[in-house]
């Protein structure tokens, strides 16, 4: 038996969510007294042996250019072959865009219970129970899996990356790979920017900014913090900002270490998408804004005055002139 971790890569690079999944999987293996092993599909540009740092003893590499783009149907069959070959009893995915495509398929294929959106290590004291977010972050549930093989999709930013010493043995895995039916024709990526779901710090703004032309100061603040930018629903609906920046119940749910909300009143639907953030800072000129109740730190004041000053103060702290 073993714990198998799916290592998601993008353009050859191992994603941060995968490093979290590896660290989490290594800990689960330790709990169960077994080994943690990784599986990589496609053509990585990184040295896979280095993944040993995150606690895996082996990395199974299925090297086939047909796997360079995600076709969940093809991926699922390949991962199922690896899982069976290594007698995996627990299979871990990052609960990111790719994980959400593959993990449910694998669950149905292997008849293995799936917990998606896990936020803590499994409790194995009485069965196998994992805590996950429900009601869009307004609550959590402990879910138990009754099947011999278990699948966990770990929420981004829910478990810290733990890097130590170690090198993994990299083994080529010879899998049957179907011809993909899904053909990826193009992809666009906002280069140089931090992906919202992986960001440690997120700077977000709402209608209080009055118009899309005022986003420069938000981007300046995000830049000094190496943060991703986000927005509230009305802002995305008014096309001031792209839809992929909308955080909230019907947008993207995030859990960064620091969330700075500027000119956002804090409707319950918005809070649902961000209330797993570790530290929340609210800047709003209305002292009655409901967001202050969910915040750790707040400034009641005009964003147009406060935000540029905040950017300068952070530059000073970081020694950037």
């Amino acid at each position: 038996m073993s714990v198998l971790i799916f290592v998601d890569i993008a353009e050859g690079q191992v994603k941060k969510a995968s490093l979290e999944a590896l660290s989490y999987g290594a800990k689960v293996a330790e709990q169960l007294g077994t080994s943690a092993e990784g599986v990589v599909l496609g053509t990585p540009k990184e040295d896979l042996a280095a993944l040993g740092k995150y606690g895996v003893s082996k990395v199974h590499h299925v090297n086939n250019p047909a796997l360079d783009h995600l076709d969940a149907q093809v991926y699922t069959k390949v991962i199922a072959q690896v899982a069976q070959a290594v007698s995996a009893t627990v299979i871990i995915f990052p609960n990111n865009m790719d994980g959400k495509s593959i993990a449910p398929r694998l669950s149905a294929r292997l008849k293995a219970g799936l917990i998606s959106g896990a936020v803590a290590l499994p409790d194995t004291s009485n069965g196998f129970t994992v805590k996950k977010n429900v009601f869009s972050g307004k609550a959590f549930a402990n879910i138990s899996i009754s099947t011999p093989v278990k699948i966990i999709a770990l929420n981004p930013n829910a478990y810290p990356v733990k890097a130590g010493e170690g090198t993994a043995t990299v083994e080529a895995f010879n899998a049957t790979v179907d011809t993909p039916k899904v053909k990826v024709t193009s992809s666009t990526k906002a280069s140089g920017e931090v992906p919202l779901t992986e960001a440690e710090i997120v700077v977000s703004a709402g209608r209080g900014l009055k118009g899309p032309e005022n986003w420069g100061m938000v981007e300046d603040l995000a830049k000094v913090l190496h943060a991703a930018t986000a927005c509230s629903r009305p802002v995305a609906d008014a096309h001031w900002r792209p839809h992929n920046e909308h955080v909230g119940q019907t947008g993207i749910a995030i859990a960064p270490n620091l969330y700075i909300a500027i000119g956002i009143s804090g409707a319950i639907q918005h809070l649902a998408g961000v209330n797993r953030s570790k530290v929340i800072v609210v800047i709003n000129k209305d002292p009655e804004a409901p967001f202050f109740k969910a915040a750790d730190y707040g400034i009641v004041g005009d964003a147009f005055e406060v935000v540029p000053k905040l950017t300068e103060a952070i530059k000073k702290l970081k020694g950037i002139s």
């Binding site: 669950s107 008849k111 293995a112 219970g113 799936l114 917990i115 129970t129 429900v134 972050g137 307004k138 609550a139 959590f140 549930a141 402990n142 879910i143 138990s144 899996i145 009754s146 099947t147 209330n275 797993r276 929340i280 800072v281 609210v282 202050f292 109740k293 969910a294 915040a295 750790d296 730190y297 707040g298 400034i299 009641v300 004041g301 005009d302 005055e305 406060v306 000053k309 905040l310 300068e312 103060a313 000073k316």
Partner: peptide, 27 residues
């Protein structure tokens, strides 16, 4: 394949610490 064992609510925030608008350095 799975069942809910129990539900819970996240712990409430301790309360917001307000910083005056003219003292951003303190934040």
């Amino acid at each position: 394949l799975t069942s809910v064992t129990s539900f819970g609510l996240p712990p409430a925030k301790a309360g917001v610490k307000l910083v005056p608008a003219d003292n951003v350095d303190e934040l």
